[in-house]
Amino acid sequence: MVDLPDTLLAGYRNFMASDFADERMRYKELADQGQTPETMVIACCDSRAAPEIIFNTRPGEIFVLRNVANLIPPYEPDGEYHAASAALEFAVQSLKVKHIVVLGHGRCGGIKAALDTDSSPLSPGDFIGKWMSLLAPAAENVTSNTLMTQTERQTALERISIRFSLNNLRSFPCVDILEKKGRLSLHGAWFDISTGELWVMDSQTGDFIRPDTDEMPVQPESNETPAA
């Protein structure tokens, strides 16, 4: 008996009939030659903000790390288990990506949890609470601002979390060295689920700016001929 939800099986059938059929040769090349993405995207695991969909990427084009609230913890070579650090290490040291993008998004549940200090743990382990405590000082500052609405606090901390992760990325020696040599670039972006707007962080000021869509580059059409 095939033990998968029917929706996933139906989606897989559609994938094989359309996307995989259109990219058959590309998948074969990726299988034979391995992946060589130039960009790593650190995104939230929220099902509404998939970076592959937002950036309309093809197979093998971006290396994606997803976790609650798109956080990167500080560099801690303490012998413990560090999933985010392991993915970062592989992307930078093995894949040798040229860009790292921290992608936050609106209405983030992890950020909401960080702001709601009265909420009860979801389990005895309180894994989300522990994870979001990385942002505790920033969350306390935002929460204490009584002139902001709850929606404004949410958006503010979502964007602060992006700057937080970028700062922590630079605590990793491999990232810091390569960025200073000009071989690695760090970027921040924030996606609004409701409107589809993408706001990009200015690397000099830290402000989030919405690019002019008329000036954005357009991806060229693939010249690959679908396999029969």
Rank of each mutant, 00 (worst) to 15 (best):
V2W: 09
M16N: 15
E23P: 00
E23H: 10
Y27C: 06
Y27Q: 05
K28V: 12
A31I: 01
T36R: 11
T36P: 05
M40T: 05
V41Q: 07
A43W: 15
D46H: 05
R48W: 10
E52W: 06
E52D: 14
I54V: 12
R58G: 07
F63Y: 08
L65W: 05
N67Q: 05
N67F: 15
V68E: 05
L71T: 02
L71I: 09
P74G: 06
E80F: 11
Y81P: 00
A84S: 02
A84D: 01
A86V: 06
A86N: 10
A86W: 14
A87F: 07
L88M: 06
F90Y: 15
Q93V: 07
S94E: 07
L95F: 06
H99I: 01
H99E: 13
I100G: 08
V102M: 05
V102A: 04
V102H: 01
G110N: 08
G110D: 11
K112P: 00
A113N: 04
A114E: 08
L115D: 01
S119A: 10
S119Y: 00
S119V: 06
P121N: 15
P121L: 03
P124T: 13
I128A: 03
G129E: 14
L134R: 09
A136H: 05
A139H: 03
T143F: 01
T149P: 01
T149N: 11
T151D: 15
R153F: 06
Q154T: 05
Q154M: 14
S161C: 05
I162R: 13
S165M: 11
N167E: 10
L178G: 09
G182C: 00
L184D: 12
S185C: 01
L186R: 02
H187E: 12
F191P: 00
I193E: 14
S194H: 13
V200R: 06
M201C: 02
G206P: 12
F208V: 06
F208W: 08
F208G: 11
P211C: 02
P211W: 03
E215R: 09
P217W: 12
P217D: 13
V218C: 09
Q219N: 08
E224P: 08
E224L: 03
E224Y: 11
T225C: 06
P226S: 01
P226E: 02
